[in-house]
Every structure is written in C-alpha cells, then in structure tokens.
Design a protein around this nucleic acid. Structure first.
Lengths: 190, 190
DNA sequence: GTCTATAACTTGATAGAC
DNA sequence: GTCTATCAAGTTATAGAC
C-alpha cells in the first residue's frame, strides 16, 4: 500500500515540472504522463492547474512565516535572529529545493485572490526581517547603511542554492550554512 | 522622423513584456498591440518570437563578457577586479533593468542552438570570476572558504536590483554600488 | 509593410461510458 | 477513478490582397 496518496504524487510531480520548465510551460498532459494517467484523470484529484501552484506557493510561504514566529518568540539577540534566519533559508533550499524554487520563481503566475494573499504573507515576513535589520543599524550592531539595501542583499544570498545545488554537484549543507552566513554577516556587522 | 526603427521598438516592447509576464506568458498578439500593429505584421520585421528572446539574451551575455575582457586587460589587482565587476553588475541592473531581467530569468526558454551558445558564453564568464576568487583564496586575500560558494554568493548579491528597483521606489545608483560592494567584499575579504 | 483570413496545433478543462 | 472523445479558446506563423 502506497504511503503517499495519488493526490500528493500529483503535487510533487507538479512542483518538479514547474521548477524544471516553469508553470506556463508545463502542460497538464505532461504532468499526467509523469504520474501515469491521462490528463483528464487529474481532475478527479484536483480542480485546476492553478490549484497546484497555489497550494505549493502558499504552503511554502506559511512555512517561512511560521518559522519566523517561532524564532522571534524564543530569541531576542539581533545577530542570533539573523543567523537563525540565514540557517533556515539554507536548510529549506537544500532539503526541499523543488518547492523552494517554485515558491521563489513561479509565484507570479498565481491568480487572484491567491496572488494577493501570497503577497501579503510575503510582505509580512519581509517587513519583519527589514525591521530587525533597521534595529541593527540603529543600535549600531550593523553598519550604518540603508536598511533596505542590507535587507535585500541579505535575502539574495540564499537565492542561488536551490538552482545550483543539483544532483551530482551537491554541496555539504553544514558547510553552506556556515560559509554563506559568515560572509553575509561579516559584511553587515559593524 | 523616428530615431529608432520599428524593429527596435518591437525588441524593446518584447523585453518589457518578457520581463513583466515572462516569455511563455507573452503572446505575439499582446506584443503587437503594444507597438500598434496586428500580430501578423510583426513578421515583416522579425522571423519568430524565439528570435526576440535570442537576441535579447545573447546581446546581454556578450555585454558582460566584453566588459570582463576589458577589465582583465586594464586591471591586475584582484580586489579591484572584483570591485569593478560588482560596480558593473549594479550599473547594468539599474540602467537597463528590462534586458537584465530577461537575460537573468528568461534565458531558459531559449531553443537550440542558441541555448547552448548562451550557456557557453555564460560559463566562460562565470569561470573567469570563479578563477579570480579562487586565486584570492590561494593568495590569502579572501577568507579560506570554498571558492564556489564565495563565487555564487558574490554573484547573487546583484540579482535583486532589477526586480526591486521599479519606478516610484528608485534607489540611488551610487549608493547601491557603494553599499552592496562594501557588504559583499567585507564579507569575503580576509 | 500592414492588413484579414486562416492553417495547424496546443492549451485547460468537461462529459459521459465503464 | 480512469478512460476516450471533445470543446472552446488560445497559440505561432503563413498566404495573399492592397
């Protein structure tokens, strides 16, 4: 007996294809072939192609926000929070590169109302990191530069991992965590 | 009399649409409307949709490689080369965000043989930067960490600019250059 | 060079037999 | 739940009148 349902299989295959070819370039027929069905049979399990993208993006977005909530409750030290966020981003990028890529690159093909919902969650998440960085600048823990620029540079440090880290040239997760976090924090810390 | 040809207008509009909606999601009808023509009339100026993407990506790729060639001839100091590369990436991202986005995000929809050609140019470009960083590690100018990770983190520092820097919230180009370059070099330099 | 008309095909999704 | 058959709409690109 299969431990994962056919519906889950479809979602996993969809994420894989959305990552490899992009949402727009992935057809339902292609997805069906991937899970051993005819295209029409997919609609016994899901309601639309858009539903696939929506669920992948929203569950990923919530994952980041939930982790943030947890960290902010448990940790007060500014640099520890940033370090933790860095580690978490790298952890997700290495452990679930497929969902992370779709979340990062394909969300723009979300339709309303999911698009707005997604944007709101991401904005909430990002504004909290920005706020932490701005605090770091104020408290003279971080260098005295525009917090928005520091924030964007910080976040962009993680965005190459899920693309680069493909089978055959895997980088060690712990080395990635330590190295990237070291570089970006050394760059920003006073 | 128009200073730019209709063909150039088409290419500019195509880049704008490819950036905003993605290559796959942009139709020739949409592009035609943008330049005030019927879709079929576009084919008096260009031979295919693919040609539009190919020219945008290849000319952008060559731009980076040419600049690299120039810098490597004029400059020997390792840190000066990295600083120059950083400035150049930021310059391009601010001055021509449209082409830079298409180059960065839409190249994967290139078809053969252009896809291979594009990959080769990019690989050549990247391997030279990687080589410089590896030299920096060897000569103990940069921190003793995996050069590939330093390289990818370096390059990713610039990838948010053309997305973020939209009309209405422009960041000052010189401030961007100084700040991002400072952060990434402080992080990597011993 | 631009148009209308259309060819040739792919798309997401549905109807209904089994 | 899965299939075959199909729909309606969209796609890139071409043919040929003007």
């Amino acid at each position: 007996m299969a431990r994962i349902s056919k519906k889950d299989k479809i979602f996993q295959a969809a994420a894989r294809l959305f990552k490899e070819f992009g949402y727009q370039a992935t057809s339902m027929r292609q997805l069906a072939k991937e899970v051993g069905l005819e295209a029409s049979s997919l609609y016994s399990h899901i309601s639309s192609k858009q539903e696939l993208l929506a669920q992948i993006c929203m569950s990923e977005a919530n994952k980041y926000l939930e982790h943030m909530n947890k960290v902010m409750k448990e940790e007060n030290d500014l640099l520890e929070i940033l370090k933790n966020m860095s580690y978490f981003h790298i952890e997700v990028a290495v452990e679930d590169p497929v969902s992370a890529t779709v979340f990062s690159d394909e969300w723009r093909y979300l339709e309303e109302p999911t698009l707005t919902e997604f944007r709101n969650i991401r904005k909430e998440y990002e504004s909290r990191i920005l706020h932490i960085i701005a605090r770091g600048v104020n408290e003279e823990v971080l260098i005295d530069r525009d917090p928005s620029i520091l924030f964007q540079t910080f976040l962009s440090s993680f965005k190459w991992i899920y693309i680069y880290n493909r089978p055959g040239r895997e980088l060690d997760k712990e080395v990635l965590k330590v190295t990237i976090t070291e570089v970006i924090l050394r760059g920003m810390v006073k």
